[in-house]
Every structure is written in C-alpha cells, then in structure tokens.
Measured scan of single mutants.
Amino acid sequence: KELVLALYDYQEKSPREVTMKKGDILTLLNSTNKDWWKVEVADRQGFVPAAYVKKL
C-alpha cells in the first residue's frame, strides 16, 4: 500500500474529510482526483487536499 506524508495540519470541514497533523503518515487509498486524495488515518477514511500531502 502507498503512504503519504502530511505536509501541513488540516482540519476537516465536512464528514467526508479527515483531520491530519503535519508529519502524520497516512495510507493513500485513491489519488485519481488531482485536488482531493482519499486517505486512511486512525481507522477513518476520508479526503484531504492533495497539495497538503506528499507521496513517500
């Protein structure tokens, strides 16, 4: 499975999103959308801005 690194803190703004902290390592589930990537963090799945994460 592919992992991404959170480059910035992100606070979810809708139930479809997830909160992450800078430095978090997240499991990447889907990166087909260039703006929003689906990730899993702490047993929750949701979207984060693609610009806020980097593939490892």
Rank of each mutant, 00 (worst) to 15 (best):
G23R: 03
L56M: 10
K55V: 12
L5G: 02
E12R: 14
K38S: 07
D35V: 15
E12W: 06
V41S: 15
A6W: 02
V39F: 00
V4Q: 01
L3T: 09
K55C: 10
N30V: 09
V18M: 13
K22A: 13
R44L: 06
Y8N: 08
L26C: 09
K13S: 10
K34F: 08
V48T: 01
G23P: 00
V4K: 00
P49H: 03
Y8R: 15
Y52R: 06
F47W: 15
Q11F: 15
D35R: 15
V39Y: 01
T19D: 04
Y10S: 00
E12G: 15
K54E: 12
K1H: 12
R44H: 07
Q11A: 13
L29H: 06
P15M: 10
R16G: 14
V18D: 00
K1F: 14
L29R: 04
Q45S: 13
R16K: 12
G46K: 02
V39D: 00
L56W: 09
D35M: 14
A51Q: 12
L3H: 09
G23W: 07
F47D: 04
D35F: 15
P49S: 02
L5W: 07
G23H: 05
L56Y: 09
K1P: 13
Y10D: 01
M20K: 00
D35T: 14
L7W: 04
S31K: 07
L7H: 03
Q45L: 08
V41H: 15
L56Q: 05
V4S: 03
E17V: 05
L7R: 05
R44A: 06
R44T: 06
E12S: 15
A51K: 15
D24M: 15
K38H: 11
G46F: 08
L28H: 00
Y8E: 10
A50R: 14
K38D: 04
N33H: 12
Y8G: 06
N33W: 08
W36F: 07
K21T: 09
V53H: 01
V53Q: 01
V4R: 02
F47R: 03
K13W: 05
V18R: 02
V48P: 00
D9P: 06
L26V: 07
K54L: 14
Q45M: 12
S14E: 09
K34Y: 09
T27H: 10
L26N: 00
L28F: 04
S31T: 09
M20P: 00
W36R: 03
P49T: 02
I25C: 07
K55N: 07
N30I: 08
K21G: 05
V48F: 02
K38T: 08
K54S: 11
N30M: 09
D9I: 03
L7E: 04
E12M: 13
K21A: 09
N33V: 05
E17T: 09
K55W: 08
N33I: 06
L28I: 05
V4A: 11
A50V: 07
G46V: 05
V53W: 01
T27D: 06
R16W: 15
T19K: 04
V41P: 02
L3S: 08
L5C: 10
K22G: 05
L29S: 03
Y10H: 04
M20V: 09
K13C: 11
T32Q: 13
R16V: 11
L7I: 10
L29F: 04
V48A: 03
P15G: 09
N30C: 12
Y10N: 00
L5P: 01
I25Q: 05
Y52I: 07
T27A: 13
T32H: 11
I25R: 05
E40H: 07
V39L: 05
L29E: 02
E2S: 12
K13A: 11
N30A: 09
L7K: 05
A6N: 00
Q45I: 13
K21N: 08
Q11C: 11
Q11M: 13
K22C: 08
V18Q: 02
K54F: 11
E2F: 12
E12L: 08
I25K: 05
A50F: 03
E17R: 05
M20L: 09
Y10K: 00
L26G: 09
Y10V: 01
Y52K: 07
G46C: 03
V18H: 03
S14P: 04
V39W: 00
L28C: 08
K55L: 14
D35N: 14
L28V: 06
E40A: 11
A6Q: 01
N33C: 11
E40K: 10
K13Q: 15
L28M: 03
L28Q: 00
L3C: 11
T27S: 10
V41N: 15
V39Q: 00
D9C: 06
E40D: 07
S14I: 04
V48K: 00
I25N: 02
Q45P: 06
I25M: 06
V53P: 00
G23S: 03
N33L: 10
K13Y: 05
L3P: 04
T32K: 12
Y52E: 02
V53Y: 02
D35Y: 15
K34R: 12
L26S: 02
K22T: 07
M20W: 01
V41I: 15
K21I: 08
Q11E: 15
G46I: 05
V41Q: 14
Y8W: 11
V48D: 02
K21R: 13
Y8M: 13
L7Q: 04
V41K: 15
L29V: 13
L56T: 06
S31L: 05
E2Q: 14
Y8H: 12
K34H: 12
F47H: 05
L29W: 06
I25S: 03
E40V: 11
K54T: 14
W37V: 07
V53K: 00
T32S: 15
A6H: 00
P15F: 09
F47I: 07
K22F: 06
K22D: 02
K13I: 07
L26R: 02
L26F: 06
L28G: 00
L7T: 05
A42T: 10
Y8L: 10
V4C: 13
L7D: 01
Y8S: 08
V18P: 01
D43V: 08
L26H: 03
P15R: 11
Y10E: 01
A50D: 01
E40N: 06
F47L: 09
N33M: 09
P15L: 10
L56S: 04
P15K: 10
K21P: 00
T19Y: 04
Y10M: 01
A51S: 14
G23K: 02
K38M: 15
R16A: 12
F47G: 02
I25G: 00
L56N: 03
Q45R: 12
P49Y: 03
V4I: 08
E2I: 14
T19V: 03
L5Q: 10
T19A: 07
V48S: 01
V18E: 01
S14N: 12
W37I: 05
K38G: 05
R44K: 11
Y8K: 15
P15Q: 10
L26P: 01
T19L: 03
A42I: 12
W36V: 03
Y52V: 06
E17K: 04
W36H: 03
K13L: 09
K22I: 06
V53T: 05
V48R: 00
A42K: 14
N30L: 10
V4N: 01
S31V: 07
A6Y: 01
V4T: 02
A51L: 12
P49M: 03
S14C: 11
Y52N: 05
R44S: 05
N33P: 05
L5N: 02
L7A: 04
T32I: 09
S14M: 08
D24W: 13
L26Y: 11
F47T: 03
L3A: 06
E2C: 15
W37S: 02
K13M: 13
E2T: 14
V53D: 01
E12F: 06
K21F: 12
L7C: 09
N33T: 07
A42D: 14
Y8C: 14
E2H: 12
L5I: 15
R44P: 00
P49D: 02
K1T: 12
V39C: 05
D35P: 02
K38Q: 13
L26W: 04
M20G: 01
M20R: 00
G23Q: 02
K1A: 11
F47K: 03
Q45T: 14
V48N: 01
